Amino acid sequence: DTINITLPDGKTLTLTVTPEFTVKELAEEIARRLGLSPEDIKDTHNGKTLDPSLTLAEYGITPGSTITLEIK
């Protein structure tokens, strides 16, 4: 299953994830792909900052969802 990550420059990154991924694991994968530190990444969905300890499923993030990435 894939989700879309909207980057600060407007580009989109597509990642393969499972509903059990935590937001922290997602940030780590994004950081790895972009050459950043996971601590520099802030993920938001529907205007809410995502708690790193919760899973994508707990936020109702499903395949095809879009998450907005902010760099701290």
Rank of each mutant, 00 (worst) to 15 (best):
E20V: 08
K72F: 10
I61L: 07
T68M: 13
D9G: 13
L36G: 07
D40V: 14
D9Q: 04
N46Q: 05
L54Y: 07
E25G: 04
N4W: 11
L26A: 02
S37A: 12
P19I: 06
R32Q: 09
P8E: 08
L56T: 01
D51N: 06
K11G: 12
V23D: 00
A27M: 15
L56G: 01
D40C: 10
E28D: 10
E28W: 07
K42I: 15
T22H: 01
K72R: 13
K72W: 11
L50P: 06
E28L: 08
L56Q: 00
I61N: 01
V23E: 00
T55G: 02
L34N: 01
R33Y: 14
G35R: 03
P19E: 06
L34C: 07
Y59W: 08
D40F: 14
G64F: 03
I5Q: 00
E70Q: 09
K42D: 10
P19K: 10
S65V: 09
E70H: 10
F21Q: 12
S37P: 11
I61Q: 01
G60V: 01
Y59I: 14
E28S: 06
I41F: 11
N4D: 07
P38A: 12
T18P: 06
L26D: 00
S65C: 11
T55P: 06
E39C: 13
L54E: 03
K11V: 11
G64D: 04
A27S: 12
E29L: 10
I3Y: 03
L7S: 04
V17W: 15
V17S: 02
N4Q: 08
E25F: 04
D1L: 15
T22K: 04
G10F: 04
D9S: 12
L34Y: 06
T12R: 08
T2I: 10
K72E: 11
R32N: 10
A57T: 09
D1K: 07
E28M: 10
F21D: 04
I3N: 00
S53Q: 09
D43W: 15
T66R: 03
G47L: 14
D40T: 12
V17Y: 13
E29Q: 07
E20N: 12
T2P: 04
D1T: 14
K72I: 13
K72N: 13
I41N: 01
K72L: 11
E25R: 06
D1C: 15
K24T: 04
T14S: 10
K48P: 09
T16G: 08
K72S: 13
D43A: 15
I5Y: 01
E58F: 07
E58A: 08
T62Y: 14
T22A: 01
G60D: 04
K42P: 14
T18F: 09
V23R: 01
K42Y: 14
D43M: 15
E29H: 08
Y59T: 07
D9C: 11
D9F: 07
E20W: 12
E25W: 06
E39A: 14
L56V: 03
L7E: 01
A27Q: 13
P8W: 10
K48C: 15
R32S: 08
T62A: 08
A31S: 08
I3Q: 00
T2R: 09
T22Q: 02
A57Y: 14
T12M: 11
I5D: 01
T62R: 07
K48L: 14
L56H: 00
I67N: 01
G60W: 02
K24Q: 12
T66K: 05
D40S: 13
P19W: 05
S37R: 13
P19N: 06
D1W: 13
L50N: 03
S37Q: 12
T16P: 11
E39W: 05
K11R: 12
P38G: 07
I5N: 01
A57N: 06
E25H: 08
T22R: 03
L69E: 01
L13C: 06
L7F: 13
H45F: 15
I61Y: 10
T68S: 12
N46G: 09
P38Q: 07
T55R: 05
Y59R: 01
E70M: 07
A27E: 06
P52Y: 11
D9H: 07
N4M: 10
T55V: 03
K48E: 15
L50H: 04
P38V: 15
G60N: 05
V17H: 03
P52W: 14
K24M: 08
F21A: 07
I71E: 04
P38D: 05
T44F: 12
G64H: 04
K72T: 13
